[in-house]
Design a protein around this nucleic acid. Sequence first.
DNA 1: AATGAATGAGGCTTCATTCAT
DNA 2: GATGAATGAAGCCTCATTCAT
Lengths: 199, 199, 199, 199
Amino acid sequence: MSSVNTSKEELLREEIIRASQKLFKQYGLQKTTMEDIAKSMGRGKSTLYYYYKSKDEVIDAVILKEINELFEKTKAEVEKVTTAEDKLKAYFLVSLKTVKTKANLYKVVKGEIEDKLPHVRKLIKKFNTREIQIVKEILLLGIENKEFNQSLKEDADLLAYSAVSAIRSLTVDLAIEDKFPNWDERLNVVINILLKGIK
Amino acid sequence: MSSVNTSKEELLREEIIRASQKLFKQYGLQKTTMEDIAKSMGRGKSTLYYYYKSKDEVIDAVILKEINELFEKTKAEVEKVTTAEDKLKAYFLVSLKTVKTKANLYKVVKGEIEDKLPHVRKLIKKFNTREIQIVKEILLLGIENKEFNQSLKEDADLLAYSAVSAIRSLTVDLAIEDKFPNWDERLNVVINILLKGIK
Amino acid sequence: MSSVNTSKEELLREEIIRASQKLFKQYGLQKTTMEDIAKSMGRGKSTLYYYYKSKDEVIDAVILKEINELFEKTKAEVEKVTTAEDKLKAYFLVSLKTVKTKANLYKVVKGEIEDKLPHVRKLIKKFNTREIQIVKEILLLGIENKEFNQSLKEDADLLAYSAVSAIRSLTVDLAIEDKFPNWDERLNVVINILLKGIK
Amino acid sequence: MSSVNTSKEELLREEIIRASQKLFKQYGLQKTTMEDIAKSMGRGKSTLYYYYKSKDEVIDAVILKEINELFEKTKAEVEKVTTAEDKLKAYFLVSLKTVKTKANLYKVVKGEIEDKLPHVRKLIKKFNTREIQIVKEILLLGIENKEFNQSLKEDADLLAYSAVSAIRSLTVDLAIEDKFPNWDERLNVVINILLKGIK
DNA sequence: AATGAATGAGGCTTCATTCAT
DNA sequence: GATGAATGAAGCCTCATTCAT
């Protein structure tokens, strides 16, 4: 019985997150009101407060979910291939494809979050840490493999960080603007430059 | 006489922008209220409205100023050197140094702006276009020079765009987090990888 | 159950209108603030916004209510009697009595409305049209009846309009000033002159 | 020297009144701001305060001027003719024509004044008193003349008051709406009814 | 004499949040 | 469990008015 409740409760909690996600992507964190979220679910505003203590908690949950989804997907794809080069490519491509469908949230998240929800920074940081860790491991693997230049070893941290930061922003920007046709395919050029640079 | 008036008015207008700039960097566009700005100048709220019609107008002015400053500085430094490689390095370094002092504003600006002030997007776009143009010209110069790989020619657009986007986000991220000591110096590694990649 | 909700909500909506009505009469449309209305009900300002989207909506509702009340009362009284003369008298007297209790609102409404709420003009016009129609029908009845002078037929429109306009202003003016004792009774003289004039 | 100053000062005072008059007619008493008035004269806002202590004083002056103009014109026309009937007609016609050009001010004035500027009520009252006095004298003349019905004598006051009130509102309403073509000419029907009624 | 500059007071509106049911 | 109702706090903006020059 309790499990039924829990499951039902969990279901609604998820519905709230889904609805919020959608609206956050469309209108941004600030502009989306609790009212908006509630209405989009055909429910009363106070229902949200039954499941989440505050708007901030809703935001947290949404971001955490996004972060995990991206992370899991990235990790899975990276593990599918073996060479460091392929892993790096895989990392880039998953980032690209995932971000493409979530462009607005990322865009929004990046600016607003830091500002208004210092608390959320931790989430982002934690996520970044995990992502950077992945990339760093790929780099180190490549260096050990002799796929990549040995001299990079001491800067692997900074490089990993830079790659994560740059790739994210680039994909977000490209996804938001629709300027370059087939940018996702053509981005290979960029990846190749990088790979050539680190080989 | 008229010039005295103009200059005096201009002076206060600038003071407002400076004060706003500072607060925007600290608290973000939304969280900074007109009240905050006024108080930080030791003046009444309505004084702001004597010089700017609305908060949006203040925001516009601040952003426009930042954009122009960065652009002019970038352009000047790039013109000081001659080889494409040096120009590219110069571009990176100015971006780095400038952004470092304006990290918060950029951070803020990037997310919030898109959301709430579609009007401001034009400013950003125009600025981006100008920056991308600079980088593209550097790339083409390098290709002509044989400094850079000839095969890049057809993707110069996308590359320039990518470089601008990536470098901006990277600098912003690095400036915000204080994780890497001397990151601005060590970033040479990143630049060198890129340069090696495109040579 | 739904009807309970509806009725409860409707109840508060009405309470708001009543409170607003009272204050509008006392202080005028502009001078009465949402704060005033809320306080006079012992409630928070934002409660008003739960029931009405804006001050304008409140004003609309108040005016619409007044208009309908006056119209219904007028119509009922006019229908009670049969001769055109009696109907005309009835029309005058109801206008008189009703307006007497609402003098301030009418006074206020007349000037402010036109100015600031072009939208409300429609309401007024529609109301005027209905009132004028009543009077016109009385006139035509009287002409057919031979109670009134046949020559009025072609100017029935203008006459009806004039009568409505004049009687309203006269009653409002008289109600506001307390100059003439028993003016409502003595106004028979005026009515008789008019009747004599049109017979 | 003092007279030069005075005259020059007087000139500007009048200019202010003229400008205010125009704007009040167009936008109403409240909606017209001191800024608006100043701008429409190509002068600074504070200049107004050099000549008038407050907005209320400006309003007073405008109204007083309007009142006097109408009164003087009315009086002059009434004195031109001799029979009571002609005088009454003259009174009506001047009211009509004058009001036609000032419709907006009257409209505005009627509602707003009472509300917000209790002080101005005195002006209006005084003006009304003078107008009513004129009409009353015409009525009494007519009664003495045997032009009008003798029985009206004891209600001359109320009748005069009513006539003034009704005619003003009627003319204002007609001037504002442009519903009836040539209403000013056709209004003779109304006047004739009244005259017939009181003969 | 004339005014540019500055502002206090106050108005409307929004929204996250609480609470009784 | 779920929510309708209510609200405090805060934000943007307007405007009559003052004051130094």
